[in-house]
Design a protein around this nucleic acid. Structure first.
Lengths: 211, 211
DNA sequence: TAGATTGTTAATCGATTAACAATC
DNA sequence: TAGATTGTTAATCGATTAACAATC
């Protein structure tokens, strides 16, 4: 399916946004769309959309455009929504709770199968339909269930040691909300950072500069 | 101070990360650092760091490097941490609560001064040291307190109408956690998106492709 | 002074946009 | 068929890296 086996990150980061817009179009009963129309409603150029999509294959039809439903399904497949991976959550504080409750994992390529936290007040309590376990239970749990992805909602200080343990347990991908930078320390491991603090400061800069 | 008045977004997005690393260096008692050393510990090139910093001025010294404490302070100033802006939170559900409790606004250029939600179960209750108000109270509140920034932790469906109301109330910046795309609809308004769903799908893609 | 490291200019690389032939 | 719109190649633009003179 893929034309090349190395797609650039800017392209990949645009895919979920295409996916959202196509979903809305689909819901609104739009069955076909041209790159020109889609570009207009997303604030992009038609060229960019065609370039992006052609990294993965020719999904359109000359003279006609793209079938919304079909393109939506294709992008979903590219993003891996059809073969969900098992994930565990580390840290069930404010942020961990919000992520667990708020995020629709099933629709985004993952399945949350366990929640871990060492706080005495939390161990044994429920978060959604998961009973919170201490991190001492990690090795046995991973041995049995083989999760691939770990969500880090823990304080920065706890991150380095926990990351090591998780990698030893077979974790190969991190969704990282902690302010610790895993990225370049562990080659071979995929890391997606959600640095909310960085995002907030970027906004601060922009508002300071554009009064 | 600024050499040019249009700094590119990639540069701006790296600033908070520099800020974090410099903070850690400072805490660890490191007083000076060369672009080469900093590049090594951040996984960047020395060239890039020097280029980035020189967008804002010459903070270093030939033959010596950069004074950690001083560079940290400079970047903080550039990001606007020294003149915090007032912000309000819209939506006090799981995510809103987590953001309000988890985020250190004061250190990142903002001050949270109000929380709004229309759910009957929430109006009148406390979140941190804020009493949650209904959105009907927005105009009067904004008239009196003039907040500049709004944090959107509301469902996608509620976003479009609320964004309009907020702009009418004088809001010029949005920290947007909703899955609604404000960006190109309102020129002149600054928007920083935290699309957690997009981030999660990007991770899904990366893990699917690198097995 | 000699060594080190910056600030800055030039070269390279990559991503976006424009153009157009292919084709539905 | 004629009109529309894709897939794809070429041109442009911007960002990163390399090189080096300035200077502490």
């Amino acid at each position: 399916m893929a034309k090349s086996n190395t797609i650039s990150m800017p392209v990949i980061r645009r895919l979920p946004r295409y996916y959202r817009f196509l979903y809305d179009l689909k819901e609104n009963g739009v069955t076909r769309i041209s790159s020109r129309e889609l570009a207009h409603c997303m604030g992009l150029t038609a060229s960019q959309i065609r370039q992006d999509l052609n990294c993965f294959g020719g999904f359109g039809q000359q003279g006609y455009g793209y079938v919304v439903e079909q393109l939506y399904a294709e992008i979903g497949r590219i993003l891996g929504t059809d073969r969900p991976m098992d994930a565990i959550l580390l840290g069930a504080g404010n942020l961990g709770k919000a992520v667990a409750n708020h995020m629709n994992f099933e629709n985004r390529g993952f399945r949350l199968i366990g929640v871990f936290d060492d706080a005495n007040a939390l161990v044994g309590t429920q978060l959604g339909n998961h009973t919170i376990c201490p991190t001492s239970a990690l090795p046995a749990f991973c041995e049995e269930n083989n999760p691939r992805m770990a969500i880090l909602c823990i304080p920065k200080e706890a991150a380095p040691a926990l990351v090591e343990r998780l990698i030893q347990c077979g974790i190969t991908g991190f969704w990282n909300f902690s302010h610790y930078d895993i990225a370049h320390h562990h080659p071979g491991v995929v890391v997606e950072n959600v640095h909310m603090g960085d995002s907030l400061m970027t906004l601060s800069y922009q508002m300071t500069e554009n009064p």
